[in-house]
């Protein structure tokens, strides 16, 4: 009922937008509470994020999600070819519509649209806010300083950082897709995040990053606790501490080799459970087996006594014959 009412309200809002555009084709576009020039949606988004205006952000998100913006752009392109100049590139609008489909995931959503549509926007991540970070190298440098100062306490991969990194660097999509596969906070999620930053370090900042190494330690603490074997956990933590000194995230991941260690730990845990279960069963069997052992002892005892008796009889006979036949 609520869903139908919402859909109707949305249809009405869309119809109003279309009507206003038809009445005055050269005027800025109107949608709910926002009004913008055709190529200024990026600036509008920046304003919405700067003001942290939820209503505005919601309206912009709806524009992309519903396909309304793309619909209007396509209609206007069809009617007048020269109107393309007033618009953002068609690919950008289509791309944003795609990003909004995975809106809930890191590296996608309205934040990604913001950095894609207005490339000059500095990263609005909490960790680097106010430092006017405009590329990955600057992001790593500023985040490193902040993380070093806070001894690894901070999040260099919030929604803004993820979207900024995804926009400014190429070839990291596989990491972002992997992140969508695992729930936040899971071991796999943490490892993919670390791999992503290791890749960024290798690409943009090959020097040591002790702040990021400290952050990695904070991230990996719960992962270490997932290793059930005490010995293995100690070995992995020791390896981590050695690798941490290098400040190289790639080296940390290589030295700890957590995916393999965790898989091996899981396998060995299952084996240990089976072995302990078997040992328990055998111990219970032995503890309850007194009567069976007593019965077996009776049998073996009788057999041993019989052998002794026959031996004694033969020995007695032979010795008597040898003694008295002389």
């Amino acid at each position: 009922m609520g869903g139908a009412a919402h859909a109707q309200a949305r249809s009405e809002t869309t119809a109003v937008t279309h009507m206003l555009r038809l009445l005055d084709p050269k005027a800025p576009l109107w949608y709910r509470n926002i009004s913008f020039s055709r190529n200024a949606i990026g600036m509008l988004m920046l304003e919405a994020f700067r003001q942290d205006n939820m209503e505005m952000k919601k309206s912009i998100a709806e524009l992309f999600e519903s396909g309304l913006l793309l619909n209007i752009a396509m209609t206007e392109f069809r009617d007048k070819r020269e109107r393309r100049a007033d618009w953002l590139p068609e690919a950008s609008i289509t791309g944003c519509q795609g990003y909004m489909k995975n809106g809930g995931e890191l590296g996608y959503g309205l934040e990604r649209c913001l950095y894609e549509l207005s490339p000059e926007t500095p990263c609005l991540s909490t960790l680097v806010l106010g430092s006017h970070v405009r590329n990955i190298s600057e992001f790593i440098e500023v985040a490193e300083q902040k993380l070093l100062a806070s001894n690894g306490h901070g999040n260099p991969f919030d929604r803004h950082a993820a979207a900024f990194i995804a926009t400014k660097s190429r070839g990291l999509d596989k990491f972002l897709i992997s992140l969508t596969l695992y729930p936040a906070g899971s071991v796999e999620h943490v490892l993919v995040e670390l791999k992503l930053f290791a890749k960024l370090q290798a690409l943009s900042h090959p020097g040591p990053l002790p702040g990021f190494a400290a952050w990695a330690e904070e991230m990996l603490k719960p992962v270490f606790l997932k290793i059930r074997s005490r010995l293995r956990r100690e070995v992995v933590i020791q390896r981590f501490r050695e690798a941490r000194k290098s400040g190289d995230l790639g080296m940390i991941l290589e030295a700890t080799d957590l995916e393999r260690q965790l898989a091996q730990d899981r396998r060995e845990y299952e084996e240990a459970l089976a072995a302990a279960g078997e040992a328990d069963r055998l111990a219970i069997f032995l503890m309850n087996g007194t009567d069976a052992r007593r019965a077996a002892a009776e049998g073996y005892g009788a057999w041993i006594t019989s052998v002794l008796s026959v031996t004694a009889l033969l020995a007695s006979t032979i010795l008597s014959v040898l003694y008295f036949m002389e």
Binding site: A302, S306, S309, L313, T317, S320
Partner: peptide, 13 residues
């Protein structure tokens, strides 16, 4: 049988 064998072993000498 055991008793008999041991017994005989004692009787034979």
């Amino acid at each position: 049988a055991t008793m008999l064998a041991f017994n005989l072993a004692g009787i034979i000498p």
